[in-house]
Write a protein that binds this DNA or RNA. Structure first.
Lengths: 356, 356
DNA sequence: GTGAAAGCGCTAACAT
DNA sequence: ATGTTAGCGCTTTCAC
């Protein structure tokens, strides 16, 4: 088949190093040579098999097998301006709130043949610009942001880069590009109305000191006041702020403080299920009856919410759908579909369980 | 400075599109032209500033500022064989066990100027080979694996790729490359001895049906039997398996089953804190006193363990240290240090709290 | 259906 | 300290 003397059963092609810069790996060139075709033909056999004749396809595939060739996506991406990489930015991965999104994003992208690059911005937005530069430098085929990008320079850079962007977990009239989220104001209002309907009249909030949580709490408070659920004679709803990201301990401490200041509250809206778990735990430790004395509502419907005792009433956000939809939007966009309609309010639902 | 007519106050260099393939973005070439130097000099100004004179440094930096240039790391990586990308593979990100590692890995890498690519293999290892191919294709500067790579083809591919590998969360005499982990057998033994010391005599296990959890449970059982903690007349320790990844509901159901079959157990070793939370919850729901009637030990020392009621005794694994050490190993390796000693047993500790 | 040529944007190697 | 040259490994473009 070829004229080299040593071709009896060569499993691995020892790449003849001709220049000092070659990294030593097996390249498409080697595969093509082994298959007896031009590199571009080998490339077609791998990327657009339908454009190549059956016999050549076979030979190329066999050559790939024999050599253990793995395409260099850096080179491919550079040549084609398609990296098949998608970057995701979350405030933090611990805290569990964004886990479902990241999980489903990773899985959905993998199904399309894309990979996920993960970045954590922190809640402070300080590292966000820096992170953005690192992301854009990789020329990903898309960027998924948690929350709206508020920094003007960040918007600018993203816009200038031309990379498809999906903002998530919030709504805005002025998205950078695509948007998949829900209204935090509506969540707060809905929970207030729900608790009002359950007969609660002295409500309080316990929430993380981050932007979106504050907006939920504010809307909750406004609605509660409008419905006459604030403390008599007070113009504000009792509330306790804890630093983000939340954890169980902050929930326990938060409830202690809140009860010390307002022993008579009868319902509590927490900014996350994790905080709510802390509240349930502290309530149990103090002998506070839930829901009899105190109704508790969480946020997020994390995996454990349904299995607590009492089972936690919470606001369900379909993180899996956010992730899957974001993946689809980006893949479609990167594969040609120009400017599809990319704004979705995925809404939320209150999952009523035993804690109210 | 140059001879084009329109150079009064140009903020953005409109890239003169000379070929139809140019992606339209600003390149190092544009920056160099604006600064009046050769591309390689601009490259040096950005990557090794100490190798460039002060005035040129200034001009290049200004040109970067003016143009909004963001280096193309695909091109840089291709040219230098340094991608500044590190891939991490975890069974799943939900389940929280590996969160701390991923979190600290992301943060540590970012501090070094590296990014993390995240892949989920599932517990079945079915997608692992496929995932590995996608990873190797990106030519990352390192791969962090959760657990030991058992698939022979996987080992082969990784070895052949020459990419630095860190296996974590386990120990082996035969690592692919570097290793940061602890002994699951020792964990099981230590917990059995600990419970024996607390006077427990009828112990049981409740664990995920994954390889490492099974080994912890097995070692626990063997030690328990040796110490005379199995049920009288039985040769095995009572145990209940649940599918991985674990969750709170599985913990609750697991305890129900276990108590139905062995109502007299006095201590339970769980394969994760999440399962243990389910056990505590179910115990509370059934009125089983913890630790009086039943001592409970978790695994992982997740964030919430210390804040449960009763606070959970558990096995602490320093995930943050695993992540930070893995990041350091890989960065050092990729920056030259040849073959440093890269095997670390980070051990574990039993954190004694109220649940025992 | 297959191939030759010409880059993608950057940096290693070798000057000067 | 700065520049010239020649790729990195792949794909686009244009021919055949």
């Amino acid at each position: 088949m070829d004229d080299t003397p040593a071709n009896k059963k060569t499993i691995i092609m020892p790449p003849p190093r001709r220049s000092r810069r070659k990294s030593g790996g097996i390249t498409l060139r080697d595969v093509a040579a082994l298959a007896g075709v031009a590199p571009i033909t080998a490339s077609r056999a791998l990327n657009t098999p339908s454009a190549v004749s059956e016999p050549i396809l076979q030979r190329v595939r066999q050559a790939v097998e024999q050599t253990g060739y793995v395409p260099n996506m850096l080179a491919g991406g550079l040549a084609s301006s398609k990296s098949r990489l998608v970057a995701a930015v979350v405030p933090t991965i611990s805290g569990n709130v964004f886990l479902e999104v990241v999980q489903s994003l990773t899985a959905s992208l993998a199904a399309y043949g894309y990979q996920l690059m993960l970045g954590q911005s922190g809640y402070e937005n300080s590292r966000e610009d820096e992170l953005l530069e690192a992301i854009i430098g990789r020329r990903p085929d898309g960027v998924v942001l948690t929350g709206i990008m508020h920094s003007a320079t960040g918007r600018q850079r993203l816009l200038a880069s031309g990379i498809p962007v999906v903002e998530t977990w919030d709504l805005t009239d002025n998205p950078i590009d695509m948007l998949i989220g829900f209204s935090h104001e509506e969540v707060g209002q809905a929970v207030a109305r729900y608790l009002h309907g359950r007969g609660k009249r002295r409500v309080a909030t316990l929430g993380a000191d981050d932007q979106r949580a504050r907006r939920r709490m504010q809307a909750f408070s406004d609605t509660a006041i409008a419905l006459g659920m604030a403390h008599p004679g007070e113009t504000a709803v009792a509330g306790q702020r804890v630093p983000a990201p939340t954890n169980v301990g902050l929930g326990r401490a938060g409830l202690r403080e809140l009860l010390a200041r307002h022993p008579d509250i009868d319902a509590l809206f927490c900014s996350s299920d994790t905080v709510a778990l802390g509240v349930l735990t502290e309530a149990q430790a103090q002998g506070v009856q839930v829901p009899r004395q105190l109704a508790v509502v969480g946020m997020g419907d994390l995996g454990f919410a349904r299995d607590l005792y009492p089972a936690l009433t919470t606001v369900r956000i379909d993180g899996a759908r956010i992730g899957a939809t974001a993946a689809r939007f980006i893949v479609e966009r990167s594969q040609g579909s120009r400017m599809r309609e990319g704004v979705v309010d995925i809404g939320f639902s209150i999952v009523e369980r035993e804690s109210t």
